[in-house]
Design a protein around this nucleic acid. Sequence first.
RNA 1: GCUCGAGUGGUGGAAUUGGUAGACACGUUGGACUUAAAAUCCAAUGGCCAUUAUGGCCGUGCGGGUUCAAGUCCCGCCUCGAGUACCA
Length: 944
Amino acid sequence: MNYNFRAIEAKWRNYWAQKSTFKADNDSAKEKYYVLAMFPYPSGAGLHVGHPLGYIASDIYARYKRLKGFNVLQPMGYDSFGLPAEQYAIQTGQHPSVTTEANIARYRDQFDQLGFSYDWSREVRTSDPKYYKWTQWIFIQLFNSWYNKDKDRAEEIEELIRIFEEEGNSNINAACDEDVPVFSATEWNELNSKKQEEILLKYRLTYLADTEVNWCPELGTVLANDEVINGVSERGGYPVVRKKMTQWNMRITAYAQRLLDDLKEIDWPQSLKDAQTNWIGRSVGASVTFNTKPSGNSKTSYPIEVFTTRPDTIFGVSFMTLAPEHELVSKITTDAQKEEVETYIHSTSQRSERDRLADVKTITGAFTGAYVEHPFTKESIPIWIGDYVLAGYGTGAVMSVPSGDQRDYDFAKHFKIPIPNIFEGIDISKEAFADKELTIIANSEFLNGLNYKDATKRVISELEKIGQGIGKVNYRLRDAVFSRQRYWGEPFPVYYVDGMPRMIQEAFLPLKLPEVDKYLPTDTGEPPLGNATKWAWDSEHSKVVDNNLIDHVKVFPLELNTMPGWAGSSQYFNRYMDPENDKAIFSQEAIKYWQQVDLYIGGVEHATGHLLYSRFWQKFMFDKGLVPHKEYARKLINQGMILGTSAFVYREEGTNRLLSRGLIKGINVTPLHADVSLVNSSDELNIEAFKEWRPEFKEAEFILENGKYLVGREVEKMSKSKYNVVNPDAICEEYGADSLRMYEMFLGPLEQSKPWNTAGISGVYAFLKKLWRLYHSGPEGEFKVSEEPASKAALKSLHKTIKKVEEDIESFSFNTSVATFMICVNELLSQKCTSRSILEPLAIIISPYAPHIAEELWEKLGHTQSISTAIFPIFEADHLVESSKEYPVSFNGKMRFTIELPLDMGKEEIESAVMSHEKTKAQLQGRIPKKVIVVPGKIVNIVG
RNA sequence: GCUCGAGUGGUGGAAUUGGUAGACACGUUGGACUUAAAAUCCAAUGGCCAUUAUGGCCGUGCGGGUUCAAGUCCCGCCUCGAGUACCA
């Protein structure tokens, strides 16, 4: 009777499915525990061995918590809106839903194969209208809300309207657009409804605005900042340009401070918190207004507002710098400088974002001919423009203090602008001085002699007195653009009356995606939904009707953009709690029971995307009183990425010769990816198979070394295009899911990225076979356990293992518990232990890791109830562990011998026991030790 | 540049947080079983020296320091990786 993992795994996969073993109730006497792994985008390639890492880890934890008696919720679903399905649709004409459906089926098979204990009755799909109904619903709630900074929470827009009607907006402290005019109640009430609507839009948490966006012509869509990497799109690597478009935006900046503050109360990896902190980019300083001096043709004085983190250096200002795109540039430039400025603006706009980033060293700029007046000294300060000032950050203008900022310093040196020194005892002839801690201000009137902190405080109060500045906190975080010119995404529940957006009433949701005959933008450049013929809103009958009925009286145009990828993933974790609910996003009973995610596992690549947006929506939901927690995930673990090991062949340039890797030195070669399945474990290429795979090399000459063609190796991300993908199906076929699960955990620490290497899997496979043998000790290898009580040694092995495995799981060190199992099984085998009292608990503690084999053994032990549904408080067995311990005893730091002593001895008892021991006396030879160091449970050290 | 993280055998990685460095596994070598292969089992495996055994010295990127004791703590470097970047 051998370990037949195929039969065993098929049997239990079936059993769990039929009995709905992992269905979680929304009500239970047991304590709840919610384990969640980030749901995947179902791509056409299926899962590779890298994907399951996090899923295995969360499954082990979920199974462990069930054993401990928790009511565990572990759901799974699909983030099924997205670009690849749409791009496939563009190429083939096949509806994205068809592709998506097929991919999901494939994923489901693979999930089942790996034995994950998901509650599939709660599956969600973001592209399912029953699901995206609630994504649309949240959008409407955001539209109907504004952010009250005084109360630090989102409130109903009706409340804001009431205040406007009663007292205007002068007393309102809201997170809103910069350009909101101040108005009284009377003025408000006299506005027509369109004007009122325009103003309200500037307050809403989701709003329409002409935004400068990252436009990717190749993809035909707008990208969020986190989807653009080094000036090219994250997906596909296409160039991205800046472009103004009317877009939906999310006012995430309203929550910037809370997103920062609440990081303190969640147990997330520090590196991830750091990434979010940097991304939000809080900087404390002051907003200062400099007024331009009327000159030449410009009679008016314009205020220029700047943000600075160093208001204490205000007396060191020797010029102002505006971004070339700054709106005042054209107004203040003098005739004499006009040509130079326009030439400069033209040349910067020609430079792409990428060039600008790549070329930081070259200093460029132009003088506008205009001046501002220093708020204190009243001196004239020249205004320059320069592209080192970014239009998108702060106000797009800076007060330049060359002595205190290196970029200002370089700019001043380059254009021969004076560099006044305002620091006590500092030499600034070589570079700027930017150390806040060591700053003592000089040559600065009332700030002389003050340090950074005091000077900042003083100058802000002086600025406030003269009305030219105020203390301010600035964030790098921008509002998130929420429109995509795409088909395969959530439609906005929005139609337009007189150009202003209206929300479709909740009762008529979901607004389903219309059919289109092509998935590309329309001929007039509108998003793909512009191709739909039935895409207009009949407001009288509240339904979608044909476009040609649009009369702007009763039938109105619908929004043509769709929502971005992160919309559907920003509340899915709560929807799992009550996924079938048709009346609400989730019932209050459900959320009161499940509260929040206790453990969230996913990739670190979502740090500034999904993991930030979802926190924002959760806080909004909290403000609305819909969820009990400000944060949705109490603890988060980032699993590392499993990388592929690519193989390369080397073609000599200009020839059809392929050189083995040892022969390429000094020769010009092009490395080409070879499929890893054509290479054996000692890097030798199967040349015939390679020729078969790549017919263009049929005639190629292979230059061998020692009779072999060796490939080069490199660790890269696993991807189809690099031919380095290892598929879990093949591994499961050869070794079984339990082997794969254990091996992925054994590979190394969960949070670390590491290359996949199939070679070592034979070790865990051999272990599972040994485990099987432990329970099959009959003469023919048939199942046999003894009812004899266990030996002391066997008990010790078992209890050591239980203790270690529990510690490991609680600290997510799954790799070392696999090692512990191996030691335990080896010990039991060598002790020929067949005692039921050992083998029963062993099956239990192994079941989170290798659930199929554990179930099978459990059944053979005579249990009728599944190991996965019973509760075993076995993990609380540490009192059984050891009764004595061997203490290594060292003399003068060198280990000499060991002494066996009872465990419950205290420090002094151990000391005296050791000192009176024969071996110690022999070792000391009558010498009197200076010191005896005792670490209970560990070591005794005698210093002579 | 800034922020974070990591450097341990041929390889992946352990080390109870200051207490026998290299667990466990892969690989390699030798052996048993077998007609043979696979599978399985046993032994060796950081380096150097010694050997009949007992043993000795060195060793966790580099250089210092604290300590009876340092992979672990402190100071100064080096290298690699990740994120971010003209953020005022």
